[in-house]
Design a protein around this nucleic acid. Structure first.
Length: 457
DNA sequence: TCTGGGGTCCTAGGACCC
DNA sequence: TCTGGGGTCCTAGGACCC
């Protein structure tokens, strides 16, 4: 049996931890550059605010509505969701974090009453006692997270991950479940599939939904009832066959232990547009530097550095251009300077004068574990590499202790307005007009309780 | 004026090997 | 008339996830 714990409206719930006055009110959280809406409270959804609505359309689409708006504050979300995961790690026998707001759990070891009751060696369907036990276990997990972090989660429990996802949707949608829904027999499985529209099934995206609907498949149950061969022939793809199997109760989707990443990308849309090479180069240097940091964090090196740029696709009135190219490093590395250098070289190749660029990014690939053997293989200058490595360590440490971008290399530029850079380089700084504070990670933002005010209330 | 930022995996087809 | 049979590796494109 698997479980999934899913944070309800994750970013909104995080913002509400320090703004309890916003409980019960419409709240939205915006993407980088305050571009579009990426999280909505239930009240905001009820108003009809769509996912991915551009922020600049919000006021005209919903006039006279009081909607609380936040820029995204990943420092806050990362820290608070980490607390949720930490509780799960204590409650669940095994777990793996799937995304910022979702965590899979493996709960079979909790089922101790079941051995004799099973007649055919199978766990599913569960006996009733185990079913009730899991229900209580999930309800308690919800309560504990709510009490200790202040964030609501929904829990789904089922014989595989695809069904657990559907169960968690039910838990979120209907109050009778008390935030935890268990699919423990075939009757419940069938009822859940019947309720679940095909586009809400994990693994069925926009394209597959369109195709399935055109073939008359409306619900997860419609899909599950088709023959396996039909699925194979219609889609010729192993993943969707696995989804079909899981809807029918098998456990076949692999458990990806979140291993080291195979590629790392850092990219941003600009606040406004950039046409000159030098400004673009400083941005690309920032992204390359960030990629190097991420590589060091997971103790890997990269052998390929790629760069992409593109113009604003929404501006049909402007000339359009996009390009991506990559270069191979002679020695795989995670050092800031060679990776920034490589990225600059690639940018030089793909930059074309006369375009208004809206976005750029750096991708590092060909990733290996950072072992000394790899580094030294064809290296003719081990001493330089050693020095570079020490330099990276020192910079990482200083930036960890004093805040990101305390030290950057010369090609980069500061992006934080509270950083140490000169005013003229902030023209393209990311827009975050409605950003909340970071009371859990910054001394300057720590909350002070006014004792007397409280006493007088 | 204004539209995010990350990732993974699968398949087909071409280049190349013997 | 008539042109093999077996591989590997790489890339682009398309699908999916949050």
């Amino acid at each position: 049996m698997y479980g999934i714990a899913d944070i309800d409206n994750c970013y909104v719930s995080c913002e509400r931890v320090f703004r309890p006055d916003l409980n019960g009110k419409p709240v939205v959280v915006l993407s980088n550059n305050d571009g579009m809406i990426v999280a909505r409270s239930n009240e905001a959804k009820a108003l009809g605010i769509g996912d991915c609505t551009p922020y600049f359309q919000l006021a005209s689409q919903f006039p006279n509505q009081k909607i609380a708006v936040f820029s995204s504050n990943y420092e806050l979300y990362g820290e608070l969701t980490g607390r949720v995961i930490s509780i799960i790690s204590k409650e669940a026998p095994a777990y793996f974090r799937y995304s910022i707001d979702e965590c899979f759990m493996y709960v079979s070891p909790l089922l101790t009453h079941n051995d004799e009751a099973r007649n055919d060696g199978k766990l599913f369907p569960l006996n009733e006692e185990d079913g009730r036990f899991l229900q209580r276990w999930g309800e308690n997990l919800h309560k504990r997270v709510r009490r200790e972090v202040g964030i609501p989660i929904s829990i789904g429990l089922a014989p595989n991950k695809t069904l657990a996802k559907i169960a968690s949707r039910l838990a979120k949608k209907f109050e009778v479940y008390k935030h935890c829904c268990v699919i423990d027999n075939d009757y419940k499985r069938t009822k859940a599939l019947e309720w679940c529209p095909i586009e809400n099934v994990w693994g069925i995206g926009r394209r597959y939904t369109a195709k399935l609907q055109s073939l008359g498949v409306k619900t997860a149950l419609d899909f599950a009832k088709h023959h396996k061969d039909w699925v194979r022939q219609t889609f010729n793809n192993i993943n969707i066959v696995r989804t079909w199997q899981e809807l029918n109760g098998e456990d076949v989707v692999p458990n990806e232990e979140l291993a080291k990443k195979k590629s790392i990308c850092t990219s941003r849309s600009f606040n406004g547009m950039i046409d000159d090479y030098d400004t673009l180069r400083t941005q690309v240097a920032n992204y390359a530097s960030r990629c190097a940091e991420k590589l060091r964090m997971q103790k890997t090196v990269a052998s390929i550095v790629g760069v992409f740029v593109n113009t604003n696709f929404f501006r049909e009135d402007l000339a359009q251009y996009w390009n991506f190219q990559e270069t191979r490093l002679i020695t795989p590395t995670n050092s800031t300077i060679p990776i920034v250098q490589a990225a600059s070289d690639v940018l030089k190749r793909i930059y074309r004068k006369g375009f208004q660029y809206k976005k750029a990014g750096v991708v590092v690939m060909g990733i290996f574990p950072d072992s000394p053997i790899q580094q030294d293989l064809f290296d003719t200058n081990a001493e330089t590499i050693q020095k570079m490595r020490r330099l990276d360590e020192v910079i990482d440490r200083i930036n960890r202790m004093n805040g990101t971008e305390t030290i950057v290399i010369g090609t980069q530029q500061y992006t934080r307005k509270d950083g140490k850079g000169k005013a003229d380089v902030f023209a393209n700084a990311i827009k975050h007009d409605f950003k909340s504070k970071n009371p859990t990670t910054r001394w300057s933002d720590i909350i002070v309780l006014n004792h007397h005010a409280k006493m007088n209330q």
